[in-house]
């Protein structure tokens, strides 16, 4: 049974590349283009990991994180937050909200696969 990963980013090329990389590694992928869209798409579906950008329109990554962690089905689901190195305050806010894994943009597809494999295997 393959594991499902949700990628939330407003950049379609980012979603596409990360999505293809994850699928080629054997994961199922769910996409959301911002926090609000992701919440609607999750809707109680089982996911094993969420990868989310911090800067997004409509609902940013930190708000999304706080919302998703309120949900009983996702409160223990690991989250990788994507950020830029200049956003230390965002990182602290996100850590407090339960995001322990961070990746600094930009990164290569191999790097995100490496990070993902520390948290869930396909």
């Amino acid at each position: 049974m393959s594991k499902t990963i949700m990628i939330v980013d407003d950049s379609s090329s980012m979603r596409q590349v990360v999505g293809i990389a994850l699928k080629s590694a054997g994961y199922d992928v769910l996409e959301g283009c911002d926090g609000r869209d992701a919440l609607a798409k999750l809707d109680g579906r089982k996911v094993h990991l969420i990868i989310s950008d911090v800067n997004m329109p409509n609902m940013d990554g930190i708000t999304f994180l706080k919302e998703v962690k309120k949900h009983a089905s996702y409160k223990f689901t690991p989250v990788i937050m994507l950020t830029t190195e200049s956003q230390e305050s965002k990182m602290n806010e996100g850590r407090a909200a339960g995001a322990k894994a961070w990746m600094v943009k930009p990164f290569k597809p191999a790097q995100i696969l490496d990070a993902v494999s520390k948290l869930v295997l396909p």
């Binding site: 980012m14 590349v17 800067n55 930009p106």
Partner: peptide, 9 residues
Amino acid sequence: HTIKGSAGL
């Protein structure tokens, strides 16, 4: 931010 992130990828 989006351009930088994707270009890095």
